[in-house]
Computed example of a mutant assay.
Amino acid sequence: MSQNRLQSVSKSQEAHRANIQRSLEHRLQIARAKGDEQLIRQLEAEMRYSS
């Protein structure tokens, strides 16, 4: 595989992880605003797992 292709794949993977992290953070903010403790715990666990 060419070096350019490898760099492109790597950048895509990084962008994907960043998007997932931002989505989780946003969902966590909403859960906290609603006071949904069960969802907060679930999202916090998902954030720990994904990091």
Rank of each mutant, 00 (worst) to 15 (best):
Met1Asn: 10
Met1Pro: 12
Ser2Gly: 15
Gln3Leu: 13
Asn4Lys: 08
Asn4Cys: 05
Asn4His: 02
Asn4Arg: 07
Asn4Leu: 14
Arg5Leu: 10
Arg5Gln: 07
Arg5Gly: 02
Leu6Val: 05
Leu6Tyr: 06
Gln7Ala: 12
Ser8Cys: 06
Val9Gly: 08
Val9Arg: 10
Val9Ser: 12
Ser10Ile: 11
Ser10Arg: 15
Ser10Cys: 12
Lys11Thr: 03
Ser12His: 13
Ser12Met: 14
Ser12Glu: 15
Ser12Gly: 15
Gln13Asn: 09
Gln13Ser: 07
Glu14Ser: 07
Glu14Lys: 01
Glu14Arg: 03
Glu14Tyr: 02
Glu14Phe: 01
Ala15Val: 02
His16Val: 04
His16Glu: 13
His16Asn: 06
His16Pro: 00
Arg17Glu: 11
Arg17Val: 07
Ala18Val: 14
Ala18Gly: 05
Asn19Gly: 08
Asn19Thr: 08
Asn19Pro: 01
Ile20Arg: 01
Ile20Phe: 01
Gln21Gly: 02
Arg22Lys: 09
Arg22Asp: 12
Arg22Leu: 07
Leu24Pro: 00
Leu24Ile: 04
Glu25Met: 13
Glu25Asp: 15
His26Gly: 14
His26Tyr: 12
His26Ser: 12
His26Leu: 12
His26Cys: 12
Arg27Asp: 14
Arg27Trp: 03
Leu28Pro: 02
Leu28Lys: 01
Leu28Glu: 00
Leu28His: 00
Leu28Gln: 00
Leu28Trp: 01
Ile30Ser: 02
Ala31Trp: 00
Ala31Cys: 03
Arg32Thr: 08
Ala33Pro: 03
Ala33Asn: 12
Gly35Trp: 14
Gly35Val: 06
Asp36Pro: 01
Glu37Gly: 06
Glu37Asn: 05
Glu37Met: 06
Gln38Tyr: 11
Gln38Lys: 14
Gln38His: 13
Leu39His: 05
Leu39Tyr: 04
Leu39Met: 14
Leu39Ala: 08
Ile40Arg: 04
Arg41Thr: 08
Arg41Gly: 07
Gln42Lys: 13
Gln42Trp: 01
Gln42Pro: 11
Gln42Gly: 11
Leu43Lys: 00
Ala45Arg: 15
Ala45Met: 13
Glu46Thr: 06
Glu46Asn: 02
Glu46Gln: 10
Glu46Val: 02
Met47Asp: 00
Met47Trp: 01
Met47Val: 00
Met47Phe: 00
Arg48Val: 09
Tyr49Trp: 09
Tyr49Gly: 02
Ser50Arg: 12
Ser50Tyr: 14
Ser50Pro: 06
Ser51Cys: 04
Ser51Leu: 05
Ser51Thr: 09
Ser51Ile: 05
Ser51Lys: 15
